[in-house]
Simulated scan of single mutants.
Amino acid sequence: MKLVKITAVTAAFAATALAGTLVGAAPAYAATYAGECGSGYSVVNSAAIGTKGTVFLAYSSSTGKNCVIAKRNTAGSAVLVEAGLGISPVGSHWPAYEGDYFTSYAGPIYLSAANQCVDWMGRISGTEGGKRGTNCG
């Protein structure tokens, strides 16, 4: 009987450890920024678009412009991909926006916003990610 209890406890511990590993693991094919905004732009923020991709906010100190791209984890058949960028607070209309059916990413879209907070988003097939009121300086 004691051997059965140890085995059950060991199995429960192993299952819990495995579940923690699965929940905390990064997506197998997470999107990565590959310079889509052009020379002089560096990623300053990013946000997951559910499990479908990532939205990247890049900035160029030489131009004072922000850039956003919404990128799928894996390229494939064209789906609706959208990117939006504006000086915070943005209401229901994104001053800089691109949305269409893309195989990989939407954008780059640009906005001059030196020393101002920005709102930015990416949306892939209805799933949205992004942030509001960030990168204020």
Rank of each mutant, 00 (worst) to 15 (best):
T32L: 03
Y29G: 08
Y33L: 02
N45C: 02
A34P: 03
P27W: 00
A30N: 08
Y33E: 04
G40P: 00
S42F: 11
A31F: 01
V23K: 13
T32M: 06
A25F: 10
C37K: 06
A19N: 12
L22A: 12
A31D: 04
T21G: 15
T21K: 10
G20N: 14
T21S: 13
A31W: 03
N45M: 06
G40Y: 00
Y33S: 02
Y41F: 15
L22W: 11
G38P: 02
A26S: 14
G35A: 01
A28D: 12
A31T: 07
S46L: 05
Y41V: 02
S46T: 15
Y29Q: 12
A48H: 08
Y33K: 02
G40L: 01
I49H: 06
Y29S: 13
G40F: 02
C37T: 08
L22P: 02
A28C: 00
S39N: 14
E36L: 09
G40H: 03
V23G: 05
C37V: 09
A25Y: 10
C37Y: 06
A25S: 14
V23S: 08
S46W: 06
Y33H: 02
A28M: 09
E36G: 07
A26H: 12
V43D: 02
C37N: 08
A25E: 10
I49E: 04
A31V: 07
I49Y: 05
A30C: 01
S42W: 09
T32H: 10
S46F: 09
A28H: 09
T21Y: 14
T32R: 12
Y41D: 00
E36A: 13
A31P: 07
A34T: 14
G20M: 13
G35L: 00
E36M: 08
I49Q: 03
E36T: 11
G35D: 08
G24D: 04
G20Y: 13
G38Q: 09
A28Y: 05
A48I: 02
S39E: 14
A28P: 00
V44E: 03
G35I: 04
G35K: 01
G20F: 14
N45V: 01
Y29K: 14
G38W: 08
N45G: 04
A47G: 05
C37E: 06
A30T: 11
N45Y: 05
A28E: 11
P27L: 00
A28T: 11
